[in-house]
Write a protein that binds this DNA or RNA. Structure first.
Lengths: 122, 122
DNA sequence: CGGTATCCGTAGCGATACTG
DNA sequence: CAGTATCGCTACGGATACCG
């Protein structure tokens, strides 16, 4: 869009730009209001049905749950399985790929814990 | 691993809830549109002035930059130093605490890279 | 230079009703 | 049960203009 005005002393090399892009993209995958909760829930509880998710994740509306599940499915983080052809039972679970997010979430949680310690000491 | 599932309710134990809270809170700290870019920029370039940030982070408006810097400062991720009492020079840099986010960002970027590989193979 | 103040459009979320 | 459809709100972000 805009022209890069990095004529001054700002240099960004390729690999750094790349990793920044990766951070941004990954954050976008996760930064919706409920996505991390959905993922965390599935990490803990495994395969779960639609209503199970809605009951387990307190406060999420049907509309939003549906939308975020679709997005997670598009990104192949979760899989959707229709157990009953009459749509009376659909199961969601993390894909193998989705499960690798556990490490990322732990990393984030760890930092958060560290952060809390720091603020409590003051 | 024993997971208690009541008929209607799903029980989550304390430590799990706690870590989920930590993930959510940390995500909130970072999930504004430009924050990770500000942090990444400061990780690379170190101490930077206001205009330097605005030039370096392509597309951010003055208003938003200002707001996000304030929030980052409140969370003690960055520090703000007035170099000139007439406000002609103000420098921002990561605090020691802020620098610990590098690991988290790397973790996220790594996952993103892994993720891309996976999609390209298909 | 380093911000605020103001205005405005849109995306995101919530609540609710409804459908197959 | 597993979703969509509809509506309404508001908070976020972008574009200026302006100020000390």
């Amino acid at each position: 869009m805009e022209s890069k005005k990095a004529k001054n002393n700002i240099n960004i090399n390729c690999s750094e730009l790349l990793s920044l892009t990766l951070v941004k993209e990954t954050m976008q995958l996760l930064s919706c209001k409920w996505k991390v909760q959905i993922i965390a829930f599935l990490l803990r509880n495994g395969k779960t049905r639609y209503m199970g998710l809605q009951r387990g994740i307190c406060g999420i509306s049907s509309r939003v749950l549906s939308k975020e599940l679709q997005e997670l499915e598009q990104n192949e983080i979760i899989s959707r399985t229709v157990m009953d052809p009459k749509l009376t039972s659909v199961e969601y679970e993390l894909t193998a790929h989705g499960k690798t997010l556990e490490g990322v979430l732990l990393c984030i949680a760890n930092w958060g814990a560290h952060c809390k310690d720091l603020f409590q000491k003051k």
